Simulated scan of single mutants.
Amino acid sequence: MKILFVGKINLDYNRVRVLINGLKKREDVEVRSYEFKKRSSFDKAHFLELEKDVDYIYVPPFRHQDIKLIKKYTSKPIIFDPLISKFMTKVIDYGHFWKAPIKYWLDFIPFHRADILLTDTLLHKKYFSKTFFISEDKIKVLPIGVDTTDFNHKKVLKFRDNVFKVGFYGSFIPLQGVDVIIDSAILLKDVKDIKFELIGDGVFYEKIKSKIAKHKLTNVLLKGWVKYEELNIEIAKYDICLGIFGKSFKTDIVIPNKVWHYAAMGKCIITKDTPGIKEVFTDNKNIVLIPNTAKALAETIFYLKSDFDKIDSVGVKAAEVIQTKYTEEHIADIFINAIK
C-alpha cells in the first residue's frame, strides 16, 4: 500500500510522528510526502507525479483548507485527520459565538469532501457525525498513541529527592485548565516539599504569571516551552504528572498528547474525570481521575505524596496500557485496518 501525506506537514507534531513512524515499520506500506507551506506554492505537476500510483492521500491535522485544493487534482481516496473542529475550538471552547457560521462551514465542507474522516476518540466521532451530519461509517477512530522511541518507561531513571515534583506540559488554553492547577498550588503553598513545574505558554500565560506573582507562590516554576526531544527528560523528573482540567465540552471528549506521553513513561497521572479519558484508561488502576476543582487536585496530590506504592503501581499499569495497545506499531495497524 502506498500513502501520500500532503499539506503543511509538521513531522514533529505528535499525531503525525506516531503515525508515520509506525507505518514506516511495516514492510507492506510505502509512505510518501509532499509538503507545501501555502496554497499559492502548490506545484500541481509535482503533486500529480507523486499521486499517480498511490492508494490513499492523507491530509494531516489542522489542514482543513487544503482539502478543496487536493480534491481538485486527484480521484484517489482522501483521508482527512483534522484532530480538531474549528467550530468546537473557537466557538464552544473560546466562546467566540460571532464566528459560529464561518467556523461551522470551515469544518463542514472539508469533512464532507474527504472520503475518510479520522477522529481520536469514539466520543469525538459521535460529535463529528451529529454536528456535521456525517455518516458514522465514514468516520474512523484512530487513537493518538505514542512513539515509544521517544517516550518509553524503560528509559526513565528515578529522580526522587526531598522535593515532591508535580509536572505539567501544554498550552495555556481553556482546554488545559491551568487555572485549576495554580489554584491547587495556592492551597498547597505552605507544604514546603511540594513543587509544581509547568512547561509551555499560550493565551492565558500572562494571566497565570500574574496570579503566581499576586499570591507570591514559591512552589510554582514556569519553564516556558521545551523542545520536543527534551520533553521525555523533563517528564522523567516528575513524581506525578497532570493532565487537563478545563470546563469545556472539548475537555470531556479528548485524550491529549501529554496523557499518552506520561503513560508511556510509566508516570502516575492525575486528570479530570471524563468519558473521553475512560475510553482508554481506568480510574485508580492506571490513572487517577478527579473532579476538575482545585480542592480535589490539591487533596489528591497531598494524599499521593505519602503513597509511593500507589504512584508506582498506577504508573506501571499506565505503561502497560501503552505497550499492549497504543505504540506506534499498534496505531499503524489500526490505521491500515480502518482505511482498507
Rank of each mutant, 00 (worst) to 15 (best):
K158I: 05
F111L: 15
F168S: 08
H112A: 03
E197A: 03
V146P: 06
D147C: 06
T89A: 04
I173H: 05
D147N: 11
K207L: 07
L157F: 12
S184A: 15
P143H: 04
S129R: 02
T148K: 08
G95N: 07
K126T: 09
G202M: 04
H124M: 12
K189D: 00
L188Y: 03
H124C: 03
K90C: 02
K99E: 15
K103V: 02
F108Q: 13
L187T: 08
A100I: 00
D201W: 12
L198W: 04
F204E: 06
V166C: 05
G170S: 13
K209V: 01
R113E: 12
V180K: 14
T119I: 06
T89N: 06
P110C: 08
T119G: 04
L142K: 11
D183C: 01
I92E: 05
G170M: 12
V91Y: 00
K211Q: 12
I186E: 10
I134Y: 06
V178T: 14
L106N: 09
I102A: 04
D150H: 13
K140R: 08
P110G: 14
Y127T: 03
L122I: 10
K192M: 08
K154S: 14
G177C: 04
P174Y: 06
F132H: 05
D107K: 02
H153G: 01
A185D: 05
K90R: 11
G170P: 09
I199C: 11
P174H: 12
V146D: 05
F128C: 07
T89G: 00
F164K: 11
L188H: 04
P101L: 13
K154N: 11
K165A: 06
G170N: 09
K86Q: 15
K99G: 05
K209W: 01
P101E: 14
K103Q: 15
N152P: 04
H124R: 02
K155R: 14
L175M: 10
D120W: 00
T149N: 14
D137P: 02
K192E: 13
N152A: 03
F111W: 03
G95P: 07
V166G: 10
K90S: 08
K158R: 07
F132P: 08
K126A: 05
L175V: 04
I208T: 00
L106K: 10
A114G: 02
S135T: 11
I199L: 12
E206M: 01
L188R: 04
